[in-house]
Design a protein around this nucleic acid. Structure first.
Lengths: 223, 223
DNA sequence: AATCTCTATATTGTATACAAACTGCCTAGG
DNA sequence: CCTAGGCAGTTTGTATACAATATAGAGATT
């Protein structure tokens, strides 16, 4: 996409993810256009994209608002991710080649570096994690699966709470990736699918725990 | 959506589905605007929607074309549909109430009427079929699942070939719906999921057969 | 003859002006 | 005091003009 449209998209998106625009906030096109330094046209474009990603919802008279993701919404998304990414893992295992396997190993090594206690680099972990899952998706060889999962992986609230993940959760994530690598190495699709489903579901509970902690923390601050 | 934008969307969509705009055809905004009697703005809007539905694809420099759905693309879509609608059927069975069950029965009765030999009403069959699956989706109680499936159910080429379905395929479809009703009546999620997955996969093969026949037919006409 | 470049043309991206629709308030009537 | 209606302000939808970019074709050069 071209410059202005991308600026609007990236700008609004980061405002939402950072919490600058809280859930339920009104998203007037004119106001957003001014804040992003572009005209309404690219803003409208960006809002449509964000709406497709379910970060933005529109009421019956076409006004836009920041979508509010309740815990049950997030649970819903994770459940579908577990199913679809499990399926992707199965297909990837069945189609796995040595080059891809090497790339996955390298990716998980990068994650290992990022979570070393002396410097727990969360951004690095997220980056590596994203890469790991992206490679699997690519290896699954289903463009449609990739496009479906795109809207599920862009979890809105998650990046905000990632910093609250415990070291333990990060280490388990790395270990589960290692197990996945074993399944891929054996080209065992069913094994990979089961591992991936478990991996995603555990990630959900890690999120729920962190979210729970965060929620009470914010409650305490407000009181 | 408002009038002009909807007209553009409906217009372009029907041009694609009817085959008036064949796969690979160039979709210039100006030309479409003229054909639909609106300006480029709503056309751009419509193209984005159609792109999200994968009916339209864009090349690297943002020009739009009618997407070509190879048989393997269609197979891909059906495979995902089988998984996701299977999941939806499971959830629907677990949450089933008597009112919804009645609505499903009524819907399948309507399908039965439509496929009676003396007047095999294909449009009626498709309408009833769409309704049946929509009710299940609604009963699954997952908005996200619904939104994911929306892009999969809008199969581009399928409606064109529906007329080539044999009576046998239509009757089997009705019968499978009946079996699903049994599973729903017992609130047996696993049963419903298995039946739905089988139902979708059989539908794919019916499509593939009809498509095969259609392809050779068109080939013959061209020669 | 092949290829490269430059220019003319076509197409998409952006901005802005205007039209239509919705919201909320304020007043008039019961 | 409460409700209905309409009016003013705000917000989104559409059209159009202009800018930026990509494509294709002609001409020149090797």
């Amino acid at each position: 996409m071209s410059r202005a449209s991308d600026r609007a998209y990236a700008g609004i998106r980061s405002m939402i993810l950072s919490g600058e625009l809280p859930a339920g906030a009104s998203l007037g096109e004119e106001a957003l256009a001014e804040r992003c330094g572009v005209s309404r046209t690219p803003v409208r474009d960006a809002l449509r994209r964000l709406e497709a990603e379910l970060l933005v919802k529109r009421n019956e008279s076409q006004r836009s608002f920041v979508a509010d993701w309740s815990l049950s919404d997030v649970a819903d998304a994770f459940e579908l991710r577990a199913i679809l990414e499990g399926h992707a893992a199965r297909r990837a295992a069945e189609r796995m080649d040595d080059t891809t396997l090497q790339r996955l190993r390298a990716c998980n090594n990068a994650i290992f570096e990022a979570i070393q206690p002396h410097q727990p680099n969360i951004a690095g972990f997220l980056e590596g994690n994203r890469g790991f899952h992206a490679i699997i998706l690519e290896a699954s060889g289903s463009r449609r699966l990739t496009s479906l999962l795109a809207t599920l992986i862009e979890q809105p609230v998650i990046w905000r709470t990632a910093n609250h993940y415990g070291r333990e959760a990060l280490r388990r994530s790395h270990g589960e990736h290692d197990e996945l690598l074993s399944a891929f190495a054996r080209r065992d699709g069913a094994w990979a699918e089961a591992l991936m489903a478990a991996h995603i579901r555990r990630a959900f509970h890690a999120y729920a725990d962190a979210h729970q902690g965060l929620a009470t923390f914010e409650l305490a601050r407000t009181a």
